[in-house]
């Protein structure tokens, strides 16, 4: 019975549940969401690949043609890659709704654009702000 006062007070208050798909809790700045690459800054130095604990980053190909392959299903969102990047080409975005049924959709490829024509990656590549 010692909880009766609070129970009554609670009835008048708004429930604390967030009605998730309809409303969303705010994501604070510097949240470690899905990392995003800004390939115009990247110098393909492979540091992020070496720093990544679960091996979620792979550099594919050689020279300026190389692509960065990011395996979101392996990523543990630790921010090591963003920390180590000498050009600050990686930003942890605020994207966190990443669950899915198809692992092949969780592979993202980033490549340096050759001229002006940006080639949009197939599966809605994340932007810096998510």
């Amino acid at each position: 019975m010692s909880i009766v006062g609070e129970a009554l007070r609670q009835l008048r208050r708004k429930p604390c549940t967030v009605r998730y798909p309809a409303e969303k809790a705010p994501v604070p700045p510097r949240f470690r969401g899905m990392p995003a690459w800004d390939m115009s800054k990247c110098i393909l130095c492979v540091l992020c690949q070496n720093a990544c604990p679960p091996g979620a980053i792979r550099l594919i190909g050689k020279g300026p043609e190389a692509e960065i392959e990011y395996l979101m299903d392996r990523c543990i969102f630790c921010e090591e890659c963003a920390e180590v990047c000498p050009k600050r080409a990686i930003v942890m975005s605020d994207r966190f709704e990443l669950a899915g049924f198809d692992r092949s959709k969780m592979v993202f490829r980033f490549r340096k654009e050759k001229e002006k024509q940006p080639e949009p990656p197939k599966h809605s590549a994340p932007t810096a702000n998510g």
């Binding site: 604070p28 510097r30 949240f31 969102f77 921010e79 942890m92």
Partner: peptide, 23 residues
């Protein structure tokens, strides 16, 4: 929520590192 703001993660904080803390 405090953790989320301090470290960037709610459960896995990734704040400790060898030689100090990251944030």
């Amino acid at each position: 929520n405090l953790f989320q703001e301090l470290t960037g993660g709610r459960v896995l904080h990734a704040i400790n590192t060898l030689g100090g803390v990251r944030r």
